[in-house]
């Protein structure tokens, strides 16, 4: 059965183009023209991935994302006409996994969709329950639960995946390329995305009372930082 993509955008011509391109690539598509109808559509169709415009009307895309994140870990790709970094950072803070700026290329959107769905599939296919413990941090990649001492960390899918790669290699520097490949798969966007998510992961662990993790090694990548 083909995967289902929910497209939430109040511009009908944008929905039409995305819908056509996605169907042409073999996906099932559900459309919604507002935040509230998008959330309803999510509950009705349980899509595998959501394309979400930030600039919706009364309930903006960031709020829709926050509400969806409370009920699903399905990948969310933001569509935004504002390419400035602040929007992107705020977008990721709301729980999005990726973003595409408008005007967009349908081919690029399809590549991002495919990449995130493969990531999701890889996670779902991993039958070996693997637990990692380094210092106060523990990670269960089967249940996808990360804890700091006894406190469960509220991580997004991307943050969890980043932490997984780092904790699997606790004594090594993990290159940015490895992180991109392991976490994002085929990546067509800005490599700055690693820094953005790493910063958010670091802040969440620190805010929970944990140590500084994800130490940057200039020009190479990151290490867990708990040796």
């Amino acid at each position: 059965m083909s995967e289902t993509i929910l497209v939430i955008d109040d511009a009908s011509e944008v929905r039409d183009l995305l819908s056509f391109a996605l169907k042409d690539a073999g996906y099932r598509v559900v459309e919604a023209d507002s935040g509230p109808t998008g959330i309803e559509a999510y509950h009705a169709h349980q899509p595998d991935l959501i394309l979400l415009d930030i600039g919706l009307g009364s309930m903006d895309g960031l709020e829709v994302c926050r509400q969806l994140r409370s009920v699903t870990s399905a990948p969310i790709i933001f569509l935004t006409s504002r390419a400035d970094e602040v929007d992107q950072l705020v977008g990721f803070a709301a729980g999005g996994d990726d973003y595409v700026t408008k005007p967009f290329s349908p081919k690029v959107v399809l590549a991002r969709v495919s990449s995130l769905l493969r990531r999701k599939q890889r996670g779902g296919d991993d039958e070996e329950k693997t637990r990692f413990q380094v210092g106060p941090l523990s990670l269960d990649t089967a249940s996808r639960i990360a804890t700091l001492d006894a406190t469960t960390l509220d991580l997004t899918r991307t943050e969890f995946d980043l932490l997984t790669v780092l904790i699997e290699n606790p004594a090594r520097v993990v290159t940015r390329e490895t992180l991109l490949e392991r976490v994002w798969g085929d990546w067509y966007g800005d490599t700055h995305v690693v820094e953005v998510h790493m910063s958010r992961l670091r802040n969440k662990v620190k805010k929970a009372g944990g140590p500084s993790i994800g130490t940057a090694v200039r020009g190479v990548g990151y290490r867990l930082g708990l040796d």
């Binding site: 011509e13 183009l17 042409d24 967009f104 290329s105 349908p106 081919k107």
Partner: peptide
């Protein structure tokens, strides 16, 4: 922005039909 050379023939045809 969409580059005409990057898109599939079907998507390109759709775009042109709707412009």
């Amino acid at each position: 922005m969409t580059n005409p050379q990057d898109e599939s023939a079907a998507v390109l045809a759709f775009i042109r039909e709707r412009q």
